[in-house]
């Protein structure tokens, strides 16, 4: 027979619930981290290793990549995951090193605000990108229409 009940501890500490957020954020760091290893190293491989590396990067290079939904989704996933992963990492660091409540609050407000603005800006850039923003563009996509 198995033990059917565990005697209640004397402390009034409530386990569960209150720790779910920290547990989820701990799991998120590992899950997003694993995805980011693939996304970021793939990004570096295509942009810095293949072809002429850093020298090949210009407006036409970006237009070429974002002509494909594959790279749009890749970059969007990378943006969101990297920003949230970094935000969560910095939140942990603020919790560890900022001792005063007011300092913690100010730093976290700044962190969440900066993250929000950057994620929104990046998302808009990916979704509203126009390879023919310059009417005189000589890119193939723009001259063939």
């Amino acid at each position: 027979m198995s033990l059917t009940s565990i005697p209640k501890p004397r402390s009034t500490y409530k386990a569960g619930r209150s720790n779910n957020f920290e547990m989820n954020s701990w799991l998120f760091m590992r899950g997003s981290g694993l995805l980011l290893v693939v996304l970021v190293i793939g990004h570096l491989f295509v942009n810095l290793w293949q072809g002429d590396g850093i020298q090949q990067i210009d407006f036409a290079f970006v237009a070429g990549k974002w002509a494909s939904p594959f790279w749009q989704i890749w970059d969007l996933a990378m943006l969101w995951l990297a920003m949230l992963h970094g935000m969560n990492g910095l939140r942990t660091i603020i919790n560890d090193y900022a001792s005063r409540g007011g300092t913690k609050f100010t730093l976290k407000t700044l962190l969440y605000f900066a993250t929000f603005v950057t994620v929104v800006l990046g998302t808009l850039v990916i979704f509203t990108f126009d390879p023919c923003i310059d009417p005189a563009s000589t890119l193939e996509v723009c001259t063939n229409r």
């Binding site: 036409a60 970006v62 943006l79 990046g122 850039v125 990108f129 923003i133 310059d134 563009s137």
Partner: peptide, 12 residues
């Protein structure tokens, strides 16, 4: 993200 956002300003 900010340097990449320049693609929305102009190619130049």
């Amino acid at each position: 993200v900010i340097d990449t956002a320049m693609v929305r300003v102009s190619p130049e």
